[in-house]
Simulated assay, not measured.
Amino acid sequence: MSDSELLVAVLARFARLLPTARELPELLDELLRGAVEVLEPDGATVTLCLPQQPEYFGGIPEKLLELEACQWDCALGPAVVAHSCGNAMTVTDIAHYGDMWPEFADLAGQHGLSSVAAVPMRVEHTETGVLSLYSRQPRQWTERDLSVAALLAGMAAGHIVTVDVVRQHQRVAEQLRHALTTRIVVEQAKGVIAHAHHTTPDAAFELIRTHARRNRVTVHAVARGIVELGLRI
C-alpha cells in the first residue's frame, strides 16, 4: 500500500469512528494508531488540555506517558511550547536541549529517543491538546510529516470540541427540564393549598415558602410533599 493509500485508509477509519465515539480514550487511541501507521515514528503520545479538566495522557507505547507527565509537571518541553504558541515544535536532536529542558531531555535519553515533533490539536482558535511523535534516531521532520500530523490532530480536536458542545447543550436542556418540572410541581402545590385554605395562589405560595424556611428544606421539596405525599401545611 502506498503512503497516499495508507493515509486515505487511516482517514476513512477515523471518519467512521467520529459519529459514534463517545469516550476520549477510544478517540485518542485511533489518533495515535493512525499517526504511527502513516508517519512511522518510534512512538507517539497525546496530551489533552481541556478547560476545567485535568490533563489526559495517551501513548504508544504506554511507557512514553511519563515523558508527557514530566513536561506538564515541569511546564517545560516541546509539547508545552507547541501548546502555548499554537505552532508545531520540531527537535532533531533532543540532547541539544539539555540546558533548556533538563528533566525532559534526560528522560527522553533514558527511553532511547533522539527526536520529537509536537503538533497542536487545534480547530480554528480552539486548542485541545498536543500530539507528539518520537524517533530513536535524529530525524528531520518534513512538511509532509507535519501536515499529516496536523490533519489527524485537527480531526481529533474537531470531534472533541463537538462532543463538548453537545454535552453543554445537554446540560442546559436538563437544567431547563428540571426548572420546568419544578415550576409545574410548585404551581400544583399552590393550587392544593389555596383550595384547602380558601385563599389566593400568591398567599398559598407564601405558606409553602414559610414552611420550607421553617423546616430548612427547599420550596420544591415542600411542593412535592404536597402534591405527591398529601402533605398539608
Rank of each mutant, 00 (worst) to 15 (best):
E23S: 11
L17T: 05
Q140P: 06
Q168W: 09
D202C: 01
L133D: 11
L180D: 15
Q52H: 10
G191V: 02
V161L: 07
N215A: 12
E23K: 08
R224W: 14
K190M: 08
G225S: 10
E40D: 14
A12M: 10
V222A: 00
H178I: 07
T162H: 13
L64M: 03
L131Y: 05
I160W: 03
H159G: 07
R139G: 01
S135T: 14
A153R: 00
Q188K: 11
A108H: 02
L176R: 13
A157R: 06
D42A: 08
T162R: 11
E40H: 13
T210P: 04
I233R: 01
V227I: 07
Q170S: 14
D42K: 06
R177W: 03
L32V: 05
S115G: 11
M1R: 09
I233A: 07
H220I: 12
W72G: 12
R216V: 15
L151F: 09
T47Y: 10
L176G: 12
L50E: 07
D93S: 10
V165H: 13
V217I: 12
V217T: 14
T45F: 03
H83W: 09
V163Q: 11
R209Y: 13
E127G: 14
E206F: 06
A44V: 08
E40W: 08
H96E: 15
A212H: 03
Y97M: 06
R224M: 15
V222Q: 05
V36S: 09
G230E: 14
R177K: 12
A149K: 00
L6M: 09
Y56C: 02
R213V: 05
G129M: 04
A21I: 12
H83F: 13
V148S: 02
A149T: 10
D106W: 04
P41W: 03
A149L: 05
G191I: 05
L17R: 08
V172I: 13
S115C: 07
Q168M: 11
L207K: 07
A69K: 10
A21M: 07
S115P: 03
V116G: 04
D106F: 03
V91C: 13
